[in-house]
Amino acid sequence: MAVTVENAEDLTRSPGASVTPDTLPSDLDITDLVVGSGKEAAVRDTVQVQYQGIRVADSGEFDSSWGRGGTPVEFPLGQVIDGFKLGISGMREGGRRILVVPPHQGYGPQGAGGVIPPNAHLVFVVDLVKVN
């Protein structure tokens, strides 16, 4: 699978990611676009992130903090889907990372909110803004 990110290293702009599906990973796939130099995130932390979420099947964006005014979203890392929990753990503030999340580490057979179908592979481009 190929993920293209327009603004790959510019954390001041929406990443503008697109996906070309071919071989889908069976486990979480992590690619660092920018390696941060700040505090490292751990599962016990609350984090602030910017992100873009894309369905692999149709390359459609289903959610984006950038699309909602560019305000970072804050959440306890231990209370999100495994793909986020495992994919953001170990990341450092100031970093940007691509997470390719298989269904069993995402929303599984139930999907989510009518925008993520059952058993969907997802791609997230995540900027780690702050670790609390």
Results as ranks from 00 to 15, higher is better:
E9F: 14
T71L: 12
L33C: 09
G87A: 07
G108Y: 05
D127M: 02
P102A: 08
K130T: 08
G83Q: 06
I30C: 00
D63Q: 11
T4A: 15
L77C: 09
T23L: 14
T12G: 06
H121R: 04
K85D: 04
V125C: 07
V49D: 00
V34C: 03
I88S: 03
G108C: 03
S65T: 14
V131I: 13
G83P: 02
G78I: 13
V43D: 10
G113L: 15
M91E: 04
S14C: 14
G111Y: 05
R96H: 01
G70A: 13
G113F: 12
V56T: 04
P25T: 13
G108R: 06
P72D: 10
L86R: 08
T23G: 13
M91R: 00
Q50T: 06
S37T: 11
I30D: 09
S18P: 04
Q50F: 01
G111S: 11
K85C: 08
G106M: 08
Y107I: 06
V123A: 09
L28H: 00
G111F: 10
I81G: 03
R68T: 15
D29Q: 14
V125G: 04
K39T: 15
S18T: 13
V3N: 04
N7R: 10
L122H: 03
G113H: 11
A42M: 13
G60H: 09
A57E: 13
F62A: 12
L28I: 03
A17C: 07
T23V: 15
V3A: 05
L86E: 14
I88N: 01
V35S: 10
G95S: 12
N132P: 10
P21G: 12
R97E: 01
G16M: 08
F75M: 13
G83R: 05
E40S: 09
E74A: 13
T4C: 12
N119L: 09
N119I: 06
G83L: 07
G95I: 01
R55P: 05
S89K: 02
V35W: 08
G53A: 09
R92L: 03
